[in-house]
Nucleic acid binder design. Structure first.
Lengths: 356, 356
DNA sequence: TCGGTTTACGAAATCGGTTTCGTTTCGAGT
DNA sequence: ACTCGAAACGAAACCGATTTCGTAAACCGA
């Protein structure tokens, strides 16, 4: 006989009563805790429709909620997904967070988030913090510089990389079809009359994504026999402007088209253009990656390579849950499925795209 | 004698060994699990410098990490802070998330995030999800419509409201000094020559924040004897543009100044202005809340009321930890400290602010 | 040297679920 | 009727830490 046997017989007492435990529910429903547990996790071994109903009724009436900590401990599963984002200021990241949140919730998982702010040290710290917290899996939008740590983490739990790859291997990656998107932007600009193209990048951003886009860009140029180059803006804002000014002057009168390699570079580009004064070279056209909400306002609308963040998020969670299920189901590390590389097609938003 | 007595004697075997438990560490260090626990939580009752060092050495060597689920269960504390954000697309929210993440990490806490997308149903669901997950406290940037649920939640664990208040009482709130910021924007516009002022709002956003700003605005107008009004854009984009167009025409030739009540309205405003064509009424000036990164690019720089997101985040976490400490320390609900209302002063970014 | 108070630590209970394993019951097949 | 397998369920171990309580040793002033 339990100490607080009749703790449950309250109808609607408003007072703060001690929390119900599973054994209280069990007693109330006249079954064993094991059966209630089966009910809670609707285990394959069915139970009589009658006991099921009885348990449901008791839970409904008492408003019982199982304590997560207890079930986590015993089952060593938390239904938590860790997310490490490099730069939350980037709308890509916030859109992704929203998508991940929704997809995770759909599978009964919650998100634990950490933000590295593009600082590898913080990223590493977040990595251990989330793992220590017991997340079932990890989504990492890495800022780079932690390849070994990430590989190590992937050895301990399921990891899916988001957008940015890691030199070391063995982890799933979900990203956009950057090469096609680059081609699409080149298409758009040439169709709009540009004769020379520049891809603008930042020195500080040395991510594999940037490199992939730059590579695709030069490939595309040579494939089409177009003139152009990759221009790396220096980090200090002013230098960047100088470099940009120089570039624009260098192509003066030649129908230049600029592609910003990502949203932040685009932002710096607009700043720089504003600084250079209202007199832009005639025929200068602009396109960019990342569909910031103001892209269709600036310059009368900027043609944009938009990533399908919602689908990316969905697939990320899908990959992760798949691996999580494997880990928690199979005995050892047997049946390791090969690392996937998934490209989610983005699309080009065609807009006016002219600076004038 | 434990089953796996010598599991610990490996030096650097690469094989995946079973995880260490606290009792393994204890055995290895020649102390009891209780002492190791004391070490881990550096409890007031000191221990010999020698045993401390011995435990530290063993932990260091084995790379032992305590299982969070177990300590959560026993201590009924998770070091998790739940965060519910209404609209992650708003840079205010993402900046806040970054700030919260940093402040929480500084106190050894992690963040569990949920995003309501301004949907009260989702918000309510997030509320229960996070509470069920066992968060120690909750930060809510509510979208409204859940006053009772939030009040109920606040009865069960510490809750701090972020930016948006809740009709019901009894919870801490951290927000900006909206009234002063409104006055600051009015200052800026009148100083720039505006004679009539409009505050632009959206019908769909009926948050207390919007209302507070609108109220402050009309107060300010009457205090200064200025002409002007609050203009509510309808929800459907097109109607909004029409309404705006109408407003601008109505004041034609009268040196109009527009204030966007928040960043999203400002975005719609820029869109609408772009749609209305390049010929804006001469002397139209614009100011806005929320310092989006492109504010200083558009229209040659838009005067902005910027909130101090970092400080807000800091104070939010501070408030929350304070209450969490009280809850976990004191016996009952004694010593309930009164709900605070904290206003963090923002500042006005003075920029060119002219549309032409 | 002796009571009295800390201090350092260990033994064992405990948190609240899940999981394993075994038992009973029920229905089908012959 | 009897066997057999599956279905429904209960008893008890278990997850891995924290916490309570107790004890032995150390310290301390008189």
């Amino acid at each position: 006989m339990p100490k607080m046997a009749q703790a449950a017989d309250n109808g609607e007492t408003g007072c703060a009563m001690a929390q119900m435990r599973i054994k209280d529910i069990a007693a109330e429903a006249g079954v064993s805790p094991a059966t209630v547990s089966r009910y809670l996790n609707n285990r394959p071994g069915q139970m009589t429709e009658e006991t099921r109903a009885r348990i449901a009724a008791v839970i409904e009436r008492t408003g019982y909620r199982p304590r997560a900590a207890a079930r986590n401990l015993r089952s060593s599963r938390t239904n938590l997904i860790g997310v490490i984002l490099a730069d939350i200021a980037n709308p890509f990241s916030s859109a992704m967070l929203e998508g991940l949140s929704a997809s995770a919730a759909a599978r009964g998982c919650s998100l634990m988030t950490a933000i590295s702010g593009n600082d590898p040290a913080k990223e590493a710290e977040s990595l251990t913090r989330l793992i220590d917290a017991g997340v079932d899996g990890l989504v990492v939008n890495t800022c780079g510089g932690n390849d070994k740590a990430i590989a190590a983490a992937a050895g301990r739990l399921p990891v899916v990389l988001l957008d940015r790859d890691v030199a070391d291997a063995g982890v799933d990656l979900v990203t956009s079809n950057n090469r096609e998107l680059v081609a699409g932007l080149v298409d758009a600009l040439t169709a709009a009359g540009s004769e020379r193209l520049c891809l603008l990048t930042e020195a500080s951003d040395d991510s594999p994504v940037r490199r992939e886009r730059a590579e695709a860009f030069t490939d595309e140029l040579s494939r089409r026999g177009l003139a152009g180059e990759v221009v790396t803006l220096a980090d200090g804002g002013a230098t960047g402007v100088g470099r940009l000014d120089e570039t624009i002057r260098g192509y003066a009168g030649k129908k230049l088209g600029l592609i910003a390699v990502n949203g932040l570079v685009f932002l710096r580009l607009t700043e720089a253009l504003a600084q250079l004064g209202p007199s832009l070279p005639a025929g200068l056209k602009i396109a960019t990656f990342d569909d910031y909400p103001w892209n269709h306002v600036l310059f009368g609308g900027v043609t944009t390579a938009a990533q399908d963040t919602l689908t990316i998020a969905e697939r990320v969670v899908e990959c992760l849950s798949e691996r999580i299920d494997i880990v928690t189901t199979t005995v050892g590390d047997a049946a390791k499925l090969a690392p996937k590389r998934i490209e989610i097609p983005g699309h080009i938003e065609h807009r006016a795209s002219t600076s004038r």
